[in-house]
């Protein structure tokens, strides 16, 4: 991987660039967008978003509702025009429809819920879209089979479940055999088996060398399939990077202790003035990892010996909540 580190939401390339320099497929700089609505007044959707996404892999784009994820995607696809800042998709400026047309055949996308003609069958919908790029019925049939819709391909889309529509949207996005996939909540409405299929599909697409830009609020999904993540909050990107690095940014809230006499350990730790609680035979102690010695001393003083002592695992969800300022106080 030519990316050697991250600065904010920008990946760092090796000094000097050359063959090790990363290729940026998506980039935004100081991107701003606000909506003015008669009833709700002015809403800032993007407040100077800086984002850079290197080629290859699955990039998770996380953020709470209203953080600006879909607005970012719409800006990248030229659907909305930002009043300030700039964006680049495969080097093209999305505000120029001519430039965007030059690269659009290399980009597959889903924006929010896939919007297809409800009165047409899934097959007809894809055939109509495919015709714009000279894609024939054979490729459409193969794509429908790939997303598991071959049996329902000739049914009207209005009879599809949300999950089936989502699959059809993914099929439409993949039909162009794109280098870059921009997917806005592609797992919406899918059952667990469907989610796993999509997860595997996206992973395999990334393994083929494609770049998958995945907007999602399903943190578990993102944690499982993404190589890198960016977290968006109030229209700005909170520092991003490889999933492991982002997880490391989370504050470890405590240590987990396993001993033979869990009740005795709880009493000993409480008596030593430490905040502790017992859950499923494991004692959770509110002590930072670097201060773990106080735990071993308190237990040893009571003749209790550790079977296991480890930091509490940090989930992406916890990091997400902490970084976006929505974490419950513990």
């Amino acid at each position: 991987m030519p990316v050697v580190g991250w600065h904010g939401c920008y990946p760092l390339a090796r000094p000097g660039g050359g063959s090790d320099a990363f290729m940026t497929v998506i980039e935004t700089r100081a991107l701003r967008k606000e909506y003015v609505r008669a009833r709700r007044g002015r809403t800032i959707a993007l407040a100077g978003l800086d984002l850079s996404i290197p080629e290859g892999g699955v990039f998770g784009f996380l953020g709470p509702n209203g953080s600006g994820k879909t607005t970012t995607i719409r800006c990248l696809l030229g659907l909305i025009r930002p009043p300030a800042g700039s964006a680049r998709l495969l080097g093209a400026d999305p505000t120029s429809q001519t430039e965007l047309a030059r690269v659009v055949s290399r980009v597959g996308s889903i924006v929010e819920t896939p919007a297809l003609f409800p009165g047409f069958s899934g097959r007809r919908n894809l055939e109509l879209l495919g015709r714009l790029e000279g894609i024939g019925p054979k490729a459409v049939g193969a794509m429908l089979a790939r997303v598991g819709l071959a049996d329902r391909a000739n049914d009207r889309v209005r009879t599809y479940s949300l999950g089936m529509r989502q699959r059809l949207g993914i099929a439409a996005a993949l039909l162009k055999d794109p280098e870059v996939l921009i997917l806005d909540e592609p797992a919406n409405g899918l059952d667990p088996a469907g989610m796993k299929e999509v997860r595997d599909l996206l992973r395999s697409l990334a393994d083929e060398g494609r770049t998958v830009f995945l907007s999602s609020h399903l943190l578990g999904e993102v944690q499982q399939i993404c190589d890198r993540v960016a977290i968006l909050s109030r229209g700005r990107c909170i520092p991003a990077g490889p999933v492991g690095e982002v997880l490391a940014r989370g504050q470890v809230a405590g240590m987990l202790v396993r001993v033979d006499d869990a009740a005795g350990a709880l009493a000993a730790l409480t008596a030593a003035g430490l905040g502790a609680s017992l859950q499923d035979g494991v004692v959770r102690v509110e002590v930072a990892p670097q201060d773990a010695a106080v735990i071993t001393k308190a237990l040893a003083d009571r003749g209790l010996y550790l079977k296991e002592l480890r930091p509490e695992e940090v989930s992406l969800e916890r990091v997400f909540l902490e970084l976006t300022g929505e974490a419950p106080s513990t």
């Binding site: 030229g78 429809q97 659009v104 924006v111």
Partner: peptide, 16 residues
Amino acid sequence: HAGTVTTLLTWEPRRI
């Protein structure tokens, strides 16, 4: 109403 304008523009962004 169906939102298909969005889908179409992701295939052909030249709006005119």
